[in-house]
């Protein structure tokens, strides 16, 4: 999983071709810790999707610009554009279903 920062976000996410899943999370957030292995397993299974983790405490600017106000928050980008968003804990199946959108 790539650590997303305000320095690399443009290259890793916005200018990336294809699908990128961004996981906005924080260390103190229990539901985020529960989602972490689910997101990692998803990345292993879907090699065509790049997975980027953004720590909202370190990257306040990024979470603000995507209007993240509840975590965990998963945002799926396609060719740099947001195509789907899920908040809270979700099952592996619901996460995979984001790809259908």
């Amino acid at each position: 999983m790539i650590e997303g920062t305000s320095d690399n976000f443009e290259n890793e996410v916005l200018k990336a071709e294809g699908l990128v899943l961004v996981d906005f999370n924080a260390d103190w957030c229990g539901p985020c810790q529960m989602m972490k292995p689910v997101v990692e397993a998803f990345g292993e299974e879907h090699k065509d999707v790049k997975v980027v983790s953004v720590n909202i405490d370190d990257e306040e600017e990024l979470s603000d610009s995507y209007e993240v106000s509840t975590i965990p928050c998963l945002v799926l980008f396609k060719d740099g554009k947001e195509v789907a968003r899920e908040i809270g804990v979700i099952s592996p199946k619901k996460l995979a279903k984001m790809l259908e959108k």
């Binding site: 405490d57 979470s63 209007e67 993240v68 106000s69 509840t70 968003r85 908040i87 809270g88």
Partner: peptide, 17 residues
């Protein structure tokens, strides 16, 4: 608007405000 201003957990999301 849940996750876009509406929250059900102050200690989880309070820091955003």
């Amino acid at each position: 608007l849940t996750g876009r201003g509406i929250s059900y957990c102050a200690t989880c999301d309070g820091g955003f405000y």
